[in-house]
């Protein structure tokens, strides 16, 4: 109770200082928020691309129907596979004529159908990374009825690399800004400790424990972190609305990410003030 009241008093006594540190934390977390917003939308776009990645197995012309049927059932049982669709030679020919209208005359003059039958294999969401796709393609390619397997290998690799880069950049930026926020909170707590030097000396004099003396400062740091994080969320929301209304349609950051961000701001505030107060209380005798 005393600690909460003192922490609130500290905000009242030095509103500029605490406001400034909350604003700096808000700014740091706001940059992370913007990056989070970008990363989330890039991730969504990539997932969209990934979900369209299919493995296509072109079948030998002489493949017996029973073998095709067996292979189709076999592939459908793969853990990674969500659907297998058989495209007959006739169906492929019809699709080609429909989709490549400008080549209609060529197709029309053909007396034989040059297109092979195929199996179109879709993968479960989240199973579309490069190594999984290569594994599935290689297992299908080993089947005797399969002539050739295609799965847009270049695309898969690029998407994979992009995801890695986005994840790594977000982690680096997050850690960097968390460190900056921690330093700012540490400096603010240091000033708060020295501003209350007389009180601390008297608290020790009359028998307050160090844990009791530390508590208001730690709560102050935690609240500063929390306020900073909430301001950062509001700022990011503002930018999101602005961009969504004028530039492009964006998806808002998932609630779990927001909660994690606010929790991270609070924890950074808590840890930074704990370290700072422990260090600077020792300097007051």
């Amino acid at each position: 109770m005393y600690a909460l009241r003192e922490a609130a008093t500290a905000f009242r006594r030095a509103p500029v200082l605490t406001g400034l540190s909350a604003a700096m934390i808000a700014l740091s977390l706001f940059v992370i928020g913007l990056f989070g917003l970008a990363a989330h939308n890039v991730r969504q776009a990539l997932e969209n691309v990934e979900s369209r990645v299919e493995v296509v197995a072109y079948l030998r012309d002489d493949a017996p129907e029973a073998s095709i049927q067996a292979a189709q059932e076999d592939i459908a049982r793969f853990r990674e596979v969500s659907a297998v669709r058989f495209i007959s030679r006739e169906e492929a020919f019809a699709v080609a004529r429909r989709e490549f209208d400008e080549l209609g005359s060529i197709f029309g003059s053909l007396e034989v159908n040059p297109l092979p039958a195929s199996l179109e294999i879709s993968l479960h969401q989240g199973q579309a990374d490069a190594s999984v796709i290569r594994g599935v393609a290689s297992r299908i390619g080993d089947m005797p009825i399969v002539e050739e397997v295609q799965f847009g290998e270049d695309w898969v690799d690029k998407v994979y690399v992009l995801r890695r880069i986005a994840g790594l950049a977000m982690l680096t930026l997050g850690l960097g800004f968390a460190a900056v926020a921690a330093l700012i909170i540490g400096a603010a707590i240091r000033m708060a400790v020295f501003a209350r030097k007389d009180e601390i000396v008297i608290m020790r004099l009359v028998g307050a424990t160090d844990a009791f003396i530390r508590r208001p400062f730690v709560i102050e740091g935690m609240i500063t972190g929390l306020i900073g994080a909430v301001l950062a969320v509001l700022g990011t929301w503002g930018v999101f609305r602005l961009l969504s209304n004028s530039v492009m349609e964006l998806t808002w950051i998932p609630a779990a990410w927001l909660l994690a961000g606010v929790a991270a701001g609070t924890v950074v505030g808590l840890l930074a003030s704990m370290v700072a107060v422990r260090r600077h209380l020792g300097e007051i005798v």
């Binding site: 005393y2 009180e199 008297i202 608290m203 009359v206 028998g207 307050a208 009791f212 003396i213």
Partner: peptide
């Protein structure tokens, strides 16, 4: 009061 408050 401060002397008493800070000892809980």
């Amino acid at each position: 009061a401060f002397a008493l408050e800070v000892t809980g």
